[in-house]
């Protein structure tokens, strides 16, 4: 298994660069914008302290903000995601609880579990982000629709990234 202390920082940097250099420039039909960087928060170890997860999420969101001139928006949405994550982990825990060597992903939990887990978090994050961005509740459904469409694209990217991990672990 790859060393955690090397893996997570390099994943952080990689995802931030991927987001600001490539994904921010992808705007499918003008308004669908995937935000893959949340994959980092989803992937963090299960036994990591909740407060630390939140701090790291804040830092991650803020670094995305710095590059995309959206001061604070991604930070607030990422913090919201980090807030939901432990509750969701609790609800979706297996009967015997989590084991210390389990990683969040298809390998250890199966595709259905992972799909449910990441889609709930992605949807929550995107809804929060898009509503903070427009900052009002008029045009509710147009914002809602944009958030959902972007969430679907992000989810597809998350699943593709799982395939990479799946392969490398099998080899």
């Amino acid at each position: 298994m790859i060393n955690r202390f090397l893996f997570y920082p390099s994943l952080f940097i990689f995802l931030v660069l991927l987001q600001v250099l490539i994904l921010n420039n992808i705007q499918l039909s003008g308004f669908i914008n995937p935000y893959l960087y949340i994959l980092f928060i989803i992937w963090l170890p299960i036994d990591m302290p909740k407060g630390l997860v939140m701090l790291v999420s804040f830092a991650l969101g803020l670094s995305i903000d710095l590059f995309s001139n959206t001061y604070g928006m991604h930070a607030s949405a990422s913090v919201f995601l980090a807030f939901l994550r432990p509750y969701l982990l609790n609800i979706m825990a297996p009967r015997d609880g989590y084991e210390s060597n389990q990683n969040i992903g298809i390998n250890d939990f199966g595709i259905l579990w992972f799909l449910a887990f990441s889609s709930i978090l992605t949807l929550a994050h995107h809804l929060f982000l898009f509503f903070v961005e427009v900052f009002r509740f008029s045009d509710f459904f147009s914002t809602f629709g944009r958030a959902i469409l972007s969430a679907i694209v992000t989810l597809i990217l998350i699943l593709i990234s799982q395939l990479f991990r799946y392969k490398s672990n099998n080899n």
Binding site: M54, F58, Y71, G72, M73, A75, S76, F80, V132
Partner: peptide
């Protein structure tokens, strides 16, 4: 954290 974020947003 949310208060800090929204402070940054509004500012």
């Amino acid at each position: 954290f949310e208060v800090v974020s929204f402070y940054i947003i509004v500012k």
